[in-house]
Write a protein that binds this DNA or RNA. Structure first.
Lengths: 336, 336
DNA sequence: CTGAAAGCGCTAACAG
DNA sequence: CTGTTAGCGCTTTCAG
């Protein structure tokens, strides 16, 4: 027996009250007598009534929905964030609309879709957006918080960690270990994280009077990083250390070096990653990496977004959280 | 300049047409003259108008939204499925509302939330639901497809793989390798996957005249599996092989055995997992496992759901897809 | 092809 | 506290 579309009117009729009494009974703040509410609830149960969220949204002009956008969940760093954020919003009584950025550019269409869907806020997980796109969303008065990417547009809040500092530490540390040919395994070249980590890394090398002899791009993906590693180490003068712009790629490199190139990591090659995903701490990998404070990041970002949803005029904030070097077993002075 | 809430009325006024002409211009099937549509589009661009999806949903009684529910994204098997499903629905012009089942039971509240939100279909990723809950959703005429869990309710479509067969193979194969004490590392005890894999496993052992000497529960989680492994192998007569109900737990066990117990895997202990997540194929792990045809599963499930959304009266279907043993390096006859 | 009119199911004043 | 009355922004007959 399908009870499809029982309306508040039906309930009102059965309960012998007005339709607005039904409405009130279902909003906790409204003033209704206990007896009315009881009658309404009983009739509702009998008919299987559920308030229609869509109708409510239309009139209150608030969808209580947040859009979360990301480009991939291959990296556990982001699936972790997604889960955290999702549970947070759920606890706040918000719904979460999920969007994936298409691999091939057409982010405008997604943005248009998001705007039409009347979400009250947008959380961007590692999504690169243009100034024009940022301006577009801002014009509609939709608060946006962007995690792990910066955009040259003042109207949007950003939460990230100190990529430059992390890269700097990685470069300087590998050099101070005595490595001579320290290569870079990049992420997505247009992403701000890639650029900042690389810039910091190069500066870290420079502080030890070194330059980067080789670099390849792995697009923050496992497979691409495997390929990039093969290219990097097929050279007649291969690197003796590697800084990868995230852990997923660092782990890919470690697999390839140990099992395809039969190189000792550490010993013959040192590797440093970025993020500190749970897997990095697994003893088999023991990856030295730059930890991003993922809990703090997601907390900051979600709270910030909620605040901006609540208060029309909250100015955007930029947060750059500190990173922490995690010394583990994938780095060691080179054997001669 | 916030252009908040430009309505079709505003556009109509500027374009010098009726409000319904605007509406028609934005629905591809509707008949409008080219000139009208052009005028409307121009005015829309000028005002930054976007059709309000919520209002549209209210009147068409179709939200073009699918709810996806899961309990955790720690297992990459499910984050992969989520991404796949999400992109599929997006391509079909559907929105995806994301829900996480609370760790502590209260799934009824989530279900209620889902029903209120007027989604057109529900995709359950490894969510255990009661008959009553299944009946509730069914009464509202909302199609449900459940992946990797069975429920004793005929009205709901189910897509899964042959857990029993996979378990059977694992048990029999380990026994045939010559292992004598083959333990079981279980998932969530109430889940159908756990029960079927365990039942198959026990029967596989029996086919080789063996029984299971020890079993512990890891709740399909990494950390819990580490603990369970420690308990299992602290025994005076520890196992010489292990079948874990998913890869995540199998990998956890491998880490603990190799690095805390200093046992050779394979050699001293063989391990078999279930799922075949990408990490299982990494050379460091080389985990022998039972592959679930994840692409086919998600494809079947999403197509099935779309069909049921389109056709009121489509009968539910049950699909059990075949599994494939993946022989890799974590299994080998025991050394004496 | 186009405009006028009637709601979708609900909330929010407004009187009583 | 309760019912009545207007709509929220849009789609969809229905005439013209």
């Amino acid at each position: 027996m399908k009870r499809k579309s029982v309306t508040s009117r039906d309930v009102a009729r059965l309960a012998g009250v007005s339709q607005s009494a039904v409405s009130r009974s279902f909003s906790p703040e409204a003033k209704v007598s206990e007896s009315t509410r009881r009658k309404v609830m009983e009739a509702s149960r009998e008919l299987g009534y559920r308030p229609n969220t869509i109708a409510r949204s239309l009139i209150t002009r608030s969808s209580r929905t947040i859009a979360v956008v990301t480009y991939s969940l291959e990296n556990p760093f982001y699936s972790f964030m997604l889960e955290k954020a999702s549970r947070f919003f759920q606890a706040q009584g918000y719904h979460l609309l999920m969007f994936f950025a298409p691999p091939s550019g057409d982010f405008d269409a997604v943005l248009d879709d998001i705007i039409r869907s009347q979400v009250e806020g947008v959380l961007l997980l590692a999504i690169t957006m243009t100034q024009r796109q940022a301006g577009l969303v801002d014009d509609f008065g939709i608060p946006v918080v962007i995690i792990n990417r910066t955009v040259d547009y003042a109207g949007i809040s950003q939460v990230g960690s100190d990529n430059y500092q992390g890269g700097y530490w990685a470069g300087r540390y590998l050099a101070s270990l005595g490595h001579q040919r320290i290569a870079f395994l990049g992420g997505l070249p247009e992403s701000s994280t890639h650029q900042q980590r690389e810039a910091g890394f190069l500066e870290g090398l420079r502080s030890k009077d070194q330059t980067c002899p080789a670099s390849e791009v792995g697009n923050y993906r496992y497979e691409d990083a495997c390929q990039a590693t093969r290219r990097l180490f097929s050279s007649p003068t291969p690197p003796d250390a590697l800084f990868a712009a995230n852990d997923l790629m660092a782990l890919a490199a470690m697999e390839i070096l140990r099992h395809e190139f039969a190189l000792k990591v550490p010993g013959e090659v040192s590797i440093i990653g970025f993020d500190d995903v749970p897997m990095a701490a697994w003893p088999s990998h023991a990856l030295t990496t730059v930890r991003q404070p993922v809990d703090m990041m997601i907390e900051k970002a979600t709270e910030l977004l909620m605040k901006q949803v609540a208060q029309e005029d909250m100015p955007p904030e930029h947060h750059i959280l500190p990173v922490t070097p995690m010394l583990r077993g994938s780095t060691r002075p080179p054997v001669r």
